[in-house]
Nucleic acid binder design. Structure first.
Lengths: 233, 233
DNA sequence: ATGAGCAGATAGTAGCACTATCGATAGTGC
DNA sequence: GCACTATCGATAGTGCTACTATCTGCTCAT
């Protein structure tokens, strides 16, 4: 398979594929001569994975490169999990925004303290460099700084319960895979795409719950039950 | 309060504040003369909200502008919810990537069908333009296209259960607010920041669950229970 | 042997989130 | 009154990211 065929097979333009090769998103093809190379099914599935990470997962090219790099070097599964997690960190700005004072360990913020307590109460044992820790703590601190009432313990615990639920499902679905290389791909894709799936479902559940709690005042347009039995008017 | 004071109060540079004024992220101050204006506490809290949306929520300036625009026009609460939801759509690329064939209604994808069935089984009634619908459907379709086994019904249902849990918590915490304008701000902040919080907690829960399922082979570095009783080495 | 295709390199583009500067004014300390 | 700083609005520039275009040798099928 040559590059133009790889391009038509994946729907990605040839210059973009070259760009991906340069950026280490795509492993090089097998050289047949100094300026010819052969690509195969592994390249097709890699390109598809990369597009999924970029488009659906919202990762930057650099983040995606770290994820696929973890797949190529055959790390233990738990490491792939860690790398995938660390590569994502939803808002890219946060990935590096929390380490400003590296020398003097500052006092923990209120959010950090609460998250630590939450881990304690839930029995969550994790490495201190887990990217979720600053992420969650930052949200709590930000919320408090906004001057609206802070996130209550009961709400936070609901979120934690929900996180436990999906994490158990995530791990169960990984454990169901039998082949190792497919397992790592599942971990990478699942970690990244799971965030998006959960966010999407949350939108739906929010709106549904909103209608249950605050019924529409009058005979306003009632929502349908699905997206299929509708046509846009 | 003048612009430079607003700047020091919020930690945002003056040129950036001007930029926010131009981009409708910040409402204009009260004019005292053709080239003087007074700012007040509402501007401080607005800037803080905007920074939270941009930095923690990961929104683009245009998305944040839509959210704060919804706050300014005093829409009913349910509309604020909708606008905040529609402004986010985690990966910005997806917000407009799903409408390519506007004239001919295409056959629904497998993912759309599954999400519709999920809404049915959960009793979720939502508008067909809920942004979560294409988001979730797209994830399912993408996952299937990757060639790994698709997301099982039990996993999907776990995610839906988790979504229900946090949505109920979200609505409950909104209902607990008494003042209306604060309520809308709570909705906006909660919708956007909730995604990030949930993603962070998911990372933590995943790692904790991973250690439960796949204990470390040997006397490898055992994870601590929190981020507080640790120092980086 | 010739024209299309390829690899690698360099350079260019579009969009985004600011950031810098300018000219004309307005308020502040002395 | 007068220097001096600050402000407004406008325009233009910067740095980064994700591509995209072009050019130069090559190589392979016809």
């Amino acid at each position: 398979m040559r590059m133009s065929e790889l391009s038509t097979a994946t729907g990605v333009a040839v210059p973009t594929l070259k760009f991906y090769l340069r950026e280490q998103l795509l492993h090089a093809g097998e050289r047949t001569s100094p300026n010819q190379a052969q690509y195969d099914a592994s390249h097709v599935e890699r390109v598809r994975l990369v597009r999924a990470l970029l488009e659906v997962g919202g990762l930057s090219v650099a983040q995606a490169a770290r994820v696929v790099g973890a797949l190529d070097s055959d790390l233990p599964l738990s490491s792939v999990f860690g790398v995938a997690q660390r590569a994502v960190s939803i808002p890219a700005a946060l990935a590096s925004a929390d380490d400003e004072a590296t020398d003097a360990e500052p006092a923990p913020t209120a959010g950090q303290t609460r998250i630590a307590a939450l881990c304690e109460s839930r029995g969550w044992r994790v490495y201190p460099n887990n990217p979720g820790l600053p992420l969650a703590a930052r949200v709590l601190d930000t919320y408090a700084a906004l001057g609206l009432g802070h996130i209550s313990d009961t709400v936070l615990d609901r979120y934690a319960q929900a996180a436990d639920l999906v994490a158990a499902a995530d791990l169960a679905s990984v454990a169901a895979v039998d082949e190792l290389t497919e397992m790592t791909r599942t971990v990478a894709a699942g970690t990244v795409l799971g965030d998006t799936l959960l966010a999407g479902l949350r939108r739906i559940a929010q709106e549904a719950e909103s209608f249950r709690r605050f019924p529409l005042p009058d005979g306003a347009p009632a929502p349908g039950t699905s997206l299929l039995d509708e046509q846009d008017c």
